[in-house]
């Protein structure tokens, strides 16, 4: 059984259709990369999965149970949506760290708020878990730094730790290195690669073709809100079947 099944997702803003009949599935422990030119709907797709946007059509199932069905309002109750979000984590293009909190506090805040409401973990456990995550990101010595005291690459790694802290089933990345200086992309990609090696289920929207080809188990090429081609990353990138994919990849090869 797939950990994630997305079926016939549609999304429009007013008259413009941004996502059109998007369907795919993802197995536990696998990484899916999504590529496509700017404006093709990649961000919107991730936002739909995290319920920052509500799809106008289609279903989303996690671990075999349908958590969202556009045709069934009982799956869209705000309070439940908040819990359902926790199946997914999202790492934003521009980090969106909370500036008034240290790296460690950024990682632990949400979990502490949950523990306060629902009981469970002690503060100490949450802190230890947060520190362990920062260490895993190579940031043990930055735990007490504020975001503005960190480089972009460090900030993005804190953001990854923050997303991991709530143990999402599926971690989504929206162009995690696009806002970074070229010399800082490596450290972030290394962290994502090691997550893939540890069998973290991930969806990675990226323009780093070599990275996607190398790390992902599955690749989707999107254009104008539809999935044009999907399959094994090496297969799609080295031998694209569709003309649109070929053109897109050719543009990247030129750059």
């Amino acid at each position: 059984m797939s950990i994630l099944e997305v079926n016939h997702i549609e999304k429009h803003f007013g008259p413009t259709k941004v996502l059109n009949d998007i369907s795919f599935s993802l197995e536990a422990g696998q990484a899916l990369s999504i590529i496509g030119s700017s404006g093709s709907g990649k961000t919107t797709l991730l936002r739909c999965l995290n319920f920052l946007e509500r799809p106008n059509g289609g279903t989303i199932a996690v671990n075999g149970s349908v958590i969202f069905d556009a045709a069934d309002p009982s799956t869209q109750i705000e309070k439940d949506i908040r819990e359902k979000r926790l199946h997914f984590g999202l790492v934003f293009q521009n980090f969106n760290l909370f500036p008034q909190y240290t790296a460690l506090q950024n990682v632990t805040l949400a979990r502490e708020l949950r523990a306060k409401k629902k009981g469970g973990e002690s503060r100490e456990e949450i802190l230890q878990a947060g520190l362990a995550l920062l260490e895993q990101m190579g940031l043990a010595d930055r735990a007490n730094h504020y975001p503005h005291q960190l480089s972009g690459g460090q900030q993005q790694r804190v953001a990854i730790a923050r997303a991991l802290a709530l143990h999402p089933d599926i971690l989504c990345f929206d162009e995690p290195t696009s806002a970074l200086d070229p010399e800082l992309t490596g450290e972030v990609l290394r962290v994502i690669r090691s997550l893939a090696e540890h069998k973290t289920t991930m969806i990675i929207v990226t323009h780093e073709m070599a990275f996607a080809r190398d790390v992902a188990d599955q690749l989707i090429f999107m254009d104008s809100g539809v999935i044009v081609e999907q399959g094994d990353p090496k297969e799609v990138i080295d031998h694209p079947k569709e003309e649109r994919t070929r053109q897109f990849l050719a543009r990247y090869a030129d750059n």
Partner: peptide, 21 residues
Amino acid sequence: PQGQYEAGQVLGMTKTQIFFK
């Protein structure tokens, strides 16, 4: 920035928590 609200939402926070925290 809108991203601050969204980062809170994605972490399962309530509107009240996002406002105060």
